[in-house]
Structure formats: structure tokens, C-alpha cells
Design a protein around this nucleic acid. Structure first.
Lengths: 216, 216
DNA sequence: AAGATAACTAACAAGTAAGTTAATTATTGG
DNA sequence: CCAATAATTAACTTACTTGTTAGTTATCTT
């Protein structure tokens, strides 16, 4: 009874890896808007070249697909952060690098911030990949501690401050649709806007943590 | 056929205003977890003493109920902010007041941050009450501009900086469920934790915007 | 105190969504 | 090149969700 379209993808009519990737890509977009709860498997499938049944063939359930999306997001992030070689920079330099890099990452993949916010709000962090995420956060916390020890940064509680720092960045991406009226007609994800926001945030954060008299 | 529980609320068996309020309260909690899309009217009703039909009787649809919840949130917020009389304070004093007040508000109603984040992410800010919200944001922006003019604050772009400031506060509440492993066994909404986070954020923000040599 | 009206309920109709299944087509290894 | 297997599909089942409706009970007015 099922009648297949005779002329599908010319070359690779079947490519399991590509199909899995297509599903993950589509799911990332869908989960970034509604989170696990509001995402529709039908809608994810519609974004791909394959049917909904493929989601279950490769990922067994919406929940497992969600886990896979989250894990992939963090793996990519981890890979990028490792390339920064923060230990080889002074604490102030490292902080500037981390912050501007955070904006670059969130700009190129604006789903990241949304997915994490939704995970916390909707699922109480049940699917948050702690192990991986901790490495990322610790990178920033260690950097702050290093700066306090070296006298570059004023005395501060590094964990609380790390949250403020990440928050000042992430919030721009999380709340951007609410805030767009502040710059009518502008795209808040345009390179120019990101650049301005990134610079202002970097200025505030750096000035906010540097010990009196110190600079980059 | 409908059999009513003979012993309901002793006194006010019927109280339209209280019922509406119950629905709004329950809806606020439900929308704060799932947003408009993932909220269940059935679940909202279950949190109240009345049936689902009452939601439609008083609010016509899930969407209108959502609008009402959002509007009430902002009205409360606006009332609180007006009481601060920021004009009567110096810019640094006013900034400290705004920030610590922001933590107090979000602590007493942690739904606020979640609802706003969800609105931006899920609905692209379609239901975001711009008029009301703008007043709140402008309060902070004007304060920053006032500080730049007076020389208390360094030159900065007040809109971008305002976002960083609000973000460093809001993010703690938005992402708290993801971040709770940073303080194992602690309640991130406990007065002590809020106080510490608030203090650290205030320190960073103030130091981040003050002109060199200036203080509160 | 009776009739009108406002508040409220249980049960239902219609539509949506997750996950399954049996059949179909492509790929691969002998 | 053929059989086994992997990838894929359309259609279906089951469960859930929104919104409605017809009827019931409390309250209010005169």
C-alpha cells in the first residue's frame, strides 16, 4: 500500500548517518523553541526529509532524542572551549577571551541558551548533562580564582560571580525576542549588534572584577 | 447527574473574585513551568478548587488566561518599582536599590523570570506586555544615563548595559535548577543564598559601571 | 420567598500527538 | 545476482487536550 516517491535524493538515497544528523538538527531547533514538553515529534519529522517513524527507529522516544540533542550541544561546546587554552593567558586576558567567545558561540548557535533555559525551567535540570556542563563552568570559576590569587581580581566569590557573568551574556539570547523593541528594525543577532553587546558586557564584567588599579 | 461535594469552603461557597484569583495563581505556576504551549488547562484546574470549565467561563481561552497572567505579573512589578522613588537617590545609590530590589522581587515570585524567558523563547515575545515592560526597563536605562551625565558612571551604552545588568540577576532564577549542583544540598532560593548572590552581583555591577575613583 | 441571574459542575465532542506496525525499498555480502 | 538485512514509509492505535454544553446550585433582588 505505501507508495514511495520514485525520484528522491538523487545520489545518497539512503544514508543512516545523514538521517540521524538531520533528525538531531531538526530536533535541536524544535526543542529550542518549546523544550521537551512542547516539542512535537511530527513537527521535528516535518523539518527533515524523513518520516516520524525514523525518530523512533533511531532514538526510541522523544525523551531519548532530547537527551541526544542536549549531549551533542555540550560536546560541541566542550570542544570549542578546549581550543581556547585559557591557562596560557593572564586571568584578565582569559576572562575577556571567555566572554567574547561565549557571545560568538551563542551567536552561531542561538539554540544553546534557549535549550538550557528551557531544561532548567521545564524539567528542573533533570536532563542537564552535569558532568559535561560542570567542566565548562569550572573553567570560568578556576580562572576567577586564579585572578584573585594573582591579585588581578578583587576578592570575590567565584561561583556566584561566574553565574552573574554567564547570566549577563546568556540573558541577551534568552530574552532577545522580548527585548527587540529596544532597537526597532534591528536584528539582535546581527554581527554588529552582537559585537556591541559583547563589548559592553566585557567592559562591565572586566571592570566589575578587576582589583583597583589593575587592567588587562 | 452532577453531584456536588456538600461540604466545600465553609463560609464563601461562591466567590467569583476569589475564584478568578485562584485560577490566576494556579495558571501563573503552570505557565511558569511550561509556558503557554506546554501548560495544561486540566492541570491548572486541578490546582484550584474549581473545574476546568471555570477557566473558560472567566477567561474564554488558554491564550486569554495567559495574557491575564502576564499582565498581572507586570502590574505588580510596576507597583513595586514605583515605590522605590529612584529619582530621589544618587545614581549609584539608585542602582544598588534597583539591583537588590530585583533579587527580592524574583525571590518572592520566582515565576516571573521563568514566564518572561518562556514568553521570549516560545512565543517570540508575542504576548510580552511591551508598554508596561518598557517602563520598567526605562527606569534602569534612565538611571544609568543620569549617572553618566553626573560623572558617577563611566561612559557606557545604557541599553546594552541594562540588559547585562538584568541578565546577571535573572539568569540565577532562570537557570537555578541546572546550577543547583554547584551548592549540593542547598536551596538556591533560600534567603541566605539570595543574599549572597545579590551581594556579589551588586558588587560586580557597581564596580562595572562606576567611573574610576568614584564610589557609592 | 420566589424568580432571575450568576457561578459552577460533569460529561462529552472534536481534534492532536506519541508511539507502533506491517509492508516496502535500498544496500550489502557471499 | 540473490538472499539477508538495514532503512524507510503510510497508516493506524491509543491516549491526551482543548473547548463546549446542558444541566445544577447558590446568591441576589424585589
Amino acid at each position: 500500500m505505501p507508495k514511495l516517491n520514485p525520484l528522491k535524493k538523487t545520489a545518497a538515497t539512503r544514508d543512516p548517518e545523514a538521517t540521524k544528523c538531520q533528525i538531531l538538527d531538526a530536533a535541536t531547533i524544535e526543542f529550542a523553541v518549546g523544550g521537551l514538553a512542547a516539542a512535537r515529534t511530527e513537527s521535528i519529522a516535518a523539518k527533515t526529509g524523513v518520516t516520524k517513524a525514523m525518530i523512533y527507529y533511531y532514538f526510541n522516544s522523544k525523551e531519548e532524542l532530547y537527551r541526544a540533542v542536549m549531549q551533542r550541544c555540550f560536546n560541541e561546546d566542550l570542544r570549542l572551549v578546549k581550543q581556547l587554552n585559557l591557562d596560557q593567558l593572564t586571568p584578565p586576558q582569559a576572562l575577556v577571551t571567555v566572554v567574547s567567545n561565549m557571545y560568538q558561540k551563542m551567536c552561531s548557535r542561538p539554540q544553546m541558551a534557549s535549550i538550557l533555559a528551557l531544561e532548567s525551567i521545564q524539567n528542573s535540570g533533570k536532563y542537564y548533562p552535569q558532568q559535561t556542563a560542570e567542566i565548562l563552568f569550572d573553567q570560568l570559576i578556576d580562572l576567577l580564582d586564579r585572578g584573585i590569587d594573582s591579585g588581578d581580581f578583587r576578592p570575590l566569590e567565584s561561583r556566584h560571580t561566574a553565574i552573574s557573568i554567564v547570566g549577563s551574556c546568556a540573558f541577551y539570547f534568552i530574552a532577545r525576542e522580548n527585548l527587540k523593541h529596544m532597537w526597532p528594525g534591528q536584528d539582535l543577532l546581527s554581527p554588529e549588534m552582537i559585537d556591541r553587546q559583547s563589548k559592553e558586557a566585557t567592559n562591565m564584567i572586566l571592570a566589575g572584577v578587576l582589583a583597583p588599579g589593575k587592567s588587562v
